[in-house]
Design a protein around this nucleic acid. Structure first.
Lengths: 150, 150
DNA sequence: GATGTTAGTTCGGATTTCGAACGGATCCGG
DNA sequence: CCGGATCCGTTCGAAATCCGAACTAACATC
């Protein structure tokens, strides 16, 4: 299989990974969730080459995860903002952050603290069942195909 | 910044992405969660070169996400199983799958159905607040630093 | 018209990735 | 004991990708 075939797979992981399964793409998305919107700011924060940033931003825009929006005319300048589809990646980001917090934070503790505005508490994300609301662990889940591959 | 510097960053996304932020790594982990354990099976399912599989499995093993365990002697054969740290990636996987289900499943619907054993319902993952138990969306979260970078 | 700002694109060399071939331990059938 | 078959890797060279530096471009300010 080639990287470019991933999106053809009948598998949601493959299809998602085809879009976001890239080092720098994930780092760009992290910054998007932290409010970064401009090309230069992405560059400053990541310290990687412009061509990569341009390429990834274009891919994400083409995929509808980000949208390019003019924030001034003369000269026209665009900023990159998360679309609804992009915002829908928030649980993915939170899950990644949480895993990193648990397994790679040193004695200093996690680099970022997340506060739930509604209850005003610092929190960690918990994955729950949409039907019964209880927390769901890996061993609580049974997977079955719905007619096709995996 | 270089790819190899990611793990040095004071950022949980960077540290996590340094380990799992790779196309094939994520596909391997998908298969791990589906019960695949042997080198040959990974190869058959992914159809990519052995060197990539060997490399990624080694990285994941070195990182403590998988562990290598002999399942027979003469000749010694090992299988790869998720450690606790690996199982802890389940929410990440579920979140990725769910995003793919929502945004890339065609008319056929999602390729895989997940059932919550405890309540015997097909479900989708919902991210909730560890403190109040309510669902948490991107806009419900306030982020602040805990002393360092981001 | 020189200089600065922001957002890219282009180019060539360094680095990675990947596929195909090879290596090696063991079992089995003859 | 010899030639496959199984299973798990390693090696090597071509191809793809990455990345930094230079370049383009549209304006604004001095």
């Amino acid at each position: 299989m080639k990287w470019s075939d991933l999106s053809e797979e009948r598998c949601s992981v493959a299809r998602s990974v085809a879009v976001i399964g890239d080092r720098w793409t994930l780092m760009l998305l992290r910054d998007c969730f932290l409010g970064v919107r401009r090309f230069e700011d992405f560059e400053r924060r990541l310290g990687i080459s412009r061509s990569i940033i341009a390429d990834r931003l274009k891919t994400l825009t083409d995929e509808g995860v980000l949208r390019r929006e003019a924030y001034q005319d003369r000269p026209v300048r665009h900023e990159y903002r998360l679309t609804e589809k992009g915002v829908a990646l928030h649980p993915v980001m939170m899950a990644i952050v949480h895993w990193g917090d648990v397994h790679y934070a040193g004695e200093e503790g996690p680099p970022l603290i997340h506060r739930h505005k509604a209850c005003a508490c610092d929190f960690t994300p918990v994955q729950t069942c949409s039907e019964c609301g209880e927390p769901v662990g890996a061993r609580d889940v049974e997977v079955r195909a719905s007619g096709g591959g995996g």
